[in-house]
Structure formats: C-alpha cells, structure tokens
Design a binder for these strands. Sequence first.
DNA 1: ACGGGAATGGTACTGAGTACCGTTCATAAG
DNA 2: CTTATGAACGGTACTCAGTACCATTCCCGT
Lengths: 228, 228
Amino acid sequence: MSKPAARTRLAEAAFTLFDERGYEQTTVDDIAERAGVGRTTFFRHYRSKEDVIFPDHDRLLEQIKDRLATSSHDTALAAVSDAVRLVLMHYLAEGDLARRRYRLTSKVAALRDREIASVARYQRLFREFISSWMGDPTESASLRAELMAAAVVAAHNHVLRRWLRGESPDPGREVDEAMHDVLALFAAPGSRTGSDDRGTTVVAFRTGQDLDTLLPALRRLVADGPGQ
Amino acid sequence: MSKPAARTRLAEAAFTLFDERGYEQTTVDDIAERAGVGRTTFFRHYRSKEDVIFPDHDRLLEQIKDRLATSSHDTALAAVSDAVRLVLMHYLAEGDLARRRYRLTSKVAALRDREIASVARYQRLFREFISSWMGDPTESASLRAELMAAAVVAAHNHVLRRWLRGESPDPGREVDEAMHDVLALFAAPGSRTGSDDRGTTVVAFRTGQDLDTLLPALRRLVADGPGQ
DNA sequence: ACGGGAATGGTACTGAGTACCGTTCATAAG
DNA sequence: CTTATGAACGGTACTCAGTACCATTCCCGT
C-alpha cells in the first residue's frame, strides 16, 4: 500500500490521462478517480486543472526575485542573464517532465497561453529590476530596459525550446553563447569587453573625413585610454 | 426605440458593469440583462466573457499577416517594424476604449494574461516571418530572428503603454524613434547606415596589437571598401 | 398575405471552481 | 490505554461560464 503522497499520484494521473484522451477531454473527476482520491483533494493540492501542469512557477519566480535582490554583478544585464540562467536550469532539472509539458502546451491553446503568461511575469520582473538598477527615469532609458528584458527572455526561450525539442545537446553552453550575443547587442560600441584590457580598442563610428585626417585623433584616444 | 445593434449595447453594458462592480463580480447574466437581451444572445456575439473586451484581435492579426505577406521592404526588420506600427495605430484609433480596457487589464490578472497571450501571437508571427525571410536555418540566425521579434514587440509595448497611461502626447513619433533604436541595435557595426555612404567607416574590434601595427590593415580596408 | 432565413430567447446540460461540514487518522499528552 | 488536537480527506451543494438544442419572432422580398 505505497502512498507516494497523493499530490504526486494526482500529477502522474493527470499527465497520463492528458496524453491518453487529451486535455479538454479529461475532467478533474477523471484525474481524482485515477489517483484514487476525492475531487476535493485535487483542488486542495492544485488551485486549478491547469496548475497540475505548472506546479511551482510561483515559487520559482520568488527564487528569481531573491536571486536578483542579492546579486552582485557590475551591470543589470549581467545580473538578469545570471537569473534567467537559473530558470533554464530549473527546466533542465525537470528533465522528461518538462518535455511532457511541452508536448501538451504545443497542442492545447489554453495551456500555451498560461505558459506565456508565466514567462511574461519573469520579463516584467526583469524589466523592473533593470529600470530601478539604472535609476534613470528617462523615456529612452525605460525603453532600453524594456528591450533588454525582452532580449534576455527571448534568448532564454530560444535555448529552452531547442532543448525541449531535443535539438540541443548542451543547453548550458548554448545559453551562455546566447547571453553573450545579447550582451554584445547592448554593449555600447567601444566600451570595455571585460575580458581583456590590453592592446588597442578601435571605436566604431562613421565620419565624413578620410582615414589620414582622423589618425591624429585616433592616436590621442589610444594614448589617453578610454576617455568619456 | 433606438437599437444600436445589440452587440454594441452588450459591450457598453459590460464595460460599465466591470467598472462598477469589477470583472469577477459581474456575471454574463448581468451583462445581458443590462443590455436588454438574453444570455444566449451574448454568447452569439462574443465567444466568451473575456471576448467583450478583446473583440477583434483575431481580425487584426490576420490584417498584420496580410500586410507582411504583401510588404516590400529591403529588410525583414523594416517590414516587421512597419507591421507593428499598424498594430499601434489600431489601438490609437480605438481611443478611449483602449484606455478603459487598459484600466481593466491592469486590475484583473485573467485579463492581463489574455492580453499578453494575444501579443505573443504577434511576436510569434514576426519571428516566423523574419526567420523565413532570412532563409538561414542556422541556430544563430534563428536566435537573431527571435531577438528581433522580441525587440520590435517590446518597443511597441513600451510606446503603447506610455500612450495608454497618458504619458505620450505623440505616440506616432515615439514609435518611429523606438523602431529606429531597434534598427540601430541590430545594425551590424560598420555596416551601411543607409543615410550617408561617403567617408570612412571604422569597424569596431579589439586586438592585442597597437595602432601603428594595424594601420596598414586599416588602410587596406578603406581602399577595398566593405570586404567581408 | 405568405414563406423563409436570420436574429433572438429559453431550457437544460457539462464541467470548473468554491464553501462548508463531517470523518478519519496520526501523534502527542495525560 | 485513553483522550485531545490538528491536519488531510471525502462528500454535498452551490455558482457560473460555456454549449447544445429548440421554439419564437422579426424582417424582407415575392
């Protein structure tokens, strides 16, 4: 008479039935019966029918919030990139469960919408974090924060989806590369790359003058180090 | 005995009641009664209770799809920027109605999620358009498409929200500026800006060599023009 | 006046989610 | 061993969204 904690049995029953008959065709009564518990018990463990599939999104969101609050990075984007990496790791740790969920969300519109809404909460959190980190209430700074949050989340989604579809053998590496791309997007041209501080940095700009005319200015820049 | 087409009366009744008692506290029966029609009629005009608030998202999505299909721009990003501008214009044309909806979605989580899901459909459409436009099935091209779609949508949302909150006197101009920023984000450093083609372009890179060592290479680049 | 199609209203049903109540069961205290 | 306590459970009954079906009315051209 093993009793793997009702909650687990409910989730297992739900996924099985969803696979067999589809989501809409499965009632909460079906799930409860299959798990050998009453209908009431189902709603005690999961707030809704959808919740069986997305059990701990709230908890994860809180974790991420904490991570951001206690993070020590030198840019907001780096902090957020690190945080979103945590989200990806959470999915990876779920393993096959995450893939079963993905198969469901691919088929059922209501579930896809729910998933999207969850992701949007992360994006909002990131946007607010970046905004407050920059401290700049300017309209253009606000837009920049919005773009950064969107880019980080998009990069995360890209890698996650690839892994969910079995197209990514090494999502950890891919997410690092993707975040690197995002960083590069927003890195001001000519700013430090952070990796190597020696040698010559050529800033990108465009001018009507020819190369010989601006060579003195270039030499001065190199001599002075990163001015501005 | 004016009969402004039942559908209109239903929408009006719904918004009024939602404002008075809140969304969850208003039943479909209440709305129908207020509009002076039967409950059945309500569901004939709107698929669901939420649909009263988001009536023509589907139609707009189709319009955007058409716009993209028949668009003639020289970059995918330009085509998508143009399309998203159409979305913004749709909201602007709604005027006060859009603002009432915004007040509701700000308060009711279920409605906010619904709105987010709609926006995600645009983003998905854009992503697929950009992807197929580039034709490049590479992983990095796919990521780039994802980032571009996310950025365009984020910029749109930014401007839209500002307007909805009454913070933007000229959203048309703002969306142009925002899209310009997005374009700039993805413009490869050193690539043509499209405005001025004369003069010297200095590409951004980083090297361990000092300026004099790489000066010959710089001169060769300038002489050859933009060689890959 | 008449026929037919579209819009309408009513009734009845399914299923999600909530509220409430009584029961069971484990455990710690006496 | 008995009892008190609290947590987990099961059952019943309710509200409300959404669907299906049927009957009625209204409008319009013939």
